[in-house]
Design a protein around this nucleic acid. Structure first.
Lengths: 153, 153
DNA sequence: TTTATATAGGAGTATATACACATAATTTTA
DNA sequence: TAAAATTATGTGTATATACTCCTATATAAA
């Protein structure tokens, strides 16, 4: 067998099905669907729920700061906030520095969040009870580590 | 303190930042960006790369079967395939059962996949070397378990 | 103080995602 | 075999995602 033949051999790509990104996206699709479905009676999705939660805890906050906090592209966050502002869930208002926008959860937003709470608990409990507490703690730490290595430049 | 006051107390939502869905999406955004950025010279994204890999290994395959295999909504897959067909990466052709469509990776699709291989390896290695092999094995198993519990009805 | 640079955000475009509904073809049932 | 049920897929609509380019504003430098 010649070296040329050896070096030109087509890989079988079997190892590529272990792609971290692929498997993360796959799991995220399934899990997001569970949360979305469970949250449906509240009228908001998982993404919106998470955004309201963060705003409730750390808001008011600037768009760019919020984006960095939740590891979301600034423009993605802007588009998401646009929808939620139309729905009356959040308020986006210019600051003293007129380049900036302060994002705040509204009173209706807080009400929806409260209404969604038992629903969110239900989805969260389903996973928690199946996976177990310790396993989830490890998973959370690993997800955090994935963010760190992915953002390391 | 009365029972009514107690029961009406607003939760602080701090526990909600441990939402599995939220943290999964957060990590997926970061990791997907790493793969997308690394794959950029090949002209395809992580999602498309994964799709080509699966097609290379198990194709030709019907749309619905492929969707189930990769835990993706059938209509989402259709939309993604539409783009990739326009780019000449895949072929979608009707089967004998005229309701069905067989999806196949094309010759150009295979070529792109081969070109993307070292790039994908680079992104994968970066994460692998940072996280370690055993930790990743556990993570993969946990992601798989998340899919199972999320889809359990 | 004018100019250069940096920062915050928006707009255009494109892919990724999925639900509700519709259609066409096949299979099952009466 | 004709009607009913099932199956495979497509369409309309909406949110989620992010890159590139652009504008407005503020800060630093000359």
């Amino acid at each position: 067998m010649s070296d040329i033949t050896e070096s030109q051999k087509m890989p079988d790509f079997l190892c590529c099905v272990d792609c971290i990104g692929f498997n993360l996206r796959k799991a995220t699709r399934a899990v997001t669907q569970l949360y979305d479905e469970t949250l449906r009676p509240s009228g908001i999705r998982g993404t919106q729920h998470s955004l309201l939660v963060v705003l409730k805890i750390i808001g008011p906050v600037l768009v760019t700061d919020l984006a960095e906090k939740i590891v979301m592209d600034r423009t993605t966050l802007s588009r998401n906030l646009e929808v939620m502002e139309k729905q009356g869930l959040v308020n986006v208002a210019p600051g003293e520095d007129r380049r900036t926008r302060w994002v705040t959860i509204t009173e209706p937003g807080s009400a929806v969040l409260l209404e969604a709470y038992p629903l969110w608990q239900q989805a969260q409990a389903k996973i928690r009870e199946s996976m177990g507490e310790e396993r989830l703690q490890v998973l959370m730490a690993d997800l955090s580590a994935l963010i760190d290595v992915s953002q390391a430049r």
